[in-house]
Amino acid sequence: MDLQLTGKRALITGSSSGIGAGIAEELAREGALVVVHGRNADRTHAVARAIADAGGRSATAIGDLSTDDGADAVANAAVAAFGGIDILINNAGGRSGGDGASDWMAASVTDWADTYQKNTIATVRMIHRLAPAMKERGWGRLIQFASSAANSPSSAVGHYAASKAAIINLTVSLSKAFANTGVTANTISPGMIATPSVDEWFDQIAAEKGWTGPDAAKRAERWAMANIVHQTVSRVGRVRDIASLTAYLCSPLADFVNGANFRSDGGRSPGIN
């Protein structure tokens, strides 16, 4: 299917690795002009080079979106790269402290504030800088990344889940603020996705269980799916699962989709929208 993305200019925040890198590669395959963003210049340039080597067009923007100066630098670099941005994918984020598996109180007030800056406020910063020009041109895509934890939070990392829930909320109000302008706003909420950090978690589980051999990580994955993640799909998600959904929402074919939250989580948080 032709997603009609040829020549569209996209900035994917947090795309120097993991899901963001996969999205950048997918959009480039569809013909989009891609700006790869990260805080680490080496990793960011490596993703952009891989896209170029595969025949795509790419540029880079380096900066920390948890500060106004960093957001200015990233937005300015992205606009300069291809003369504007038609698609903003707010994927960058993270959390501060509070990594306890079940201790809600482990995250301090400072951790809550820092995490809100990294996720929610960073998203707002980039929308403020890039969305008005989309409205002026009469077309644009604003895609925010939340998490299955936003819909179905556990006792762990409550500050992270709350900041992601705020992103779902702000996206709905954003879709109304840009009503009838050609600019749409939607959210994607991934579940357990096979990224390097998840692979490390599976290795840790295997080590704790004493499992060794070439199938130890796969055994750990099956155990985690059955005992921790509780999905209705038996496998862990892949980056391509998320990248393909994102590419569709970026497309002109998705003109009639606005203000929605897409849970791509293997059925981890089933519910009625």
Rank of each mutant, 00 (worst) to 15 (best):
Asp2Trp: 00
Gly7Met: 03
Arg9Trp: 02
Ser15Pro: 08
Ser16Phe: 08
Ser16Thr: 08
Ser17Glu: 09
Ile19Thr: 07
Ile19Arg: 11
Ile23Leu: 04
Glu25Thr: 15
Ala28His: 06
Ala32Ser: 13
Val36Pro: 01
Arg43Trp: 00
Thr44Asp: 07
His45Phe: 03
Gly56Ser: 06
Thr67Arg: 12
Asp68Glu: 15
Gly70Ile: 08
Gly70His: 12
Ala77Ile: 05
Ala80Tyr: 03
Ile85Arg: 09
Ile85Pro: 06
Asn91Lys: 10
Ala92Ser: 14
Gly94Thr: 04
Arg95Thr: 11
Asp99Glu: 14
Val109Lys: 08
Thr110Asn: 14
Asp111Phe: 02
Thr120Cys: 14
Ile121Thr: 15
Ala122Lys: 09
Val124Phe: 12
Arg125Pro: 10
Pro132Arg: 05
Ala133Asn: 14
Leu142Phe: 00
Phe145Ala: 05
Ala146Asp: 05
Pro153Cys: 10
Ser154Val: 07
Ile168Leu: 13
Leu174Ser: 12
Ala177Phe: 09
Ala177Leu: 14
Phe178Leu: 14
Ala179Met: 06
Val183Asn: 09
Asn186Cys: 03
Thr187Leu: 00
Thr187Gln: 02
Ile188Met: 08
Met192Ser: 14
Met192Tyr: 08
Val198Ser: 06
Asp199Leu: 14
Phe202Gln: 04
Gln204Leu: 08
Thr212Glu: 11
Pro214Gln: 01
Lys218Ile: 06
Glu221Ile: 07
Ala224Leu: 02
Met225Gly: 09
Met225Trp: 00
Ala226Ser: 11
Ile228Gly: 06
Arg238Pro: 00
Asp241Cys: 04
Ile242Met: 04
Ile242Glu: 02
Phe256Val: 02
Val257Tyr: 07
Asn261Ile: 04
Ser264Asn: 12
Ser264Phe: 05
Arg268Thr: 11
Asn273Gln: 07
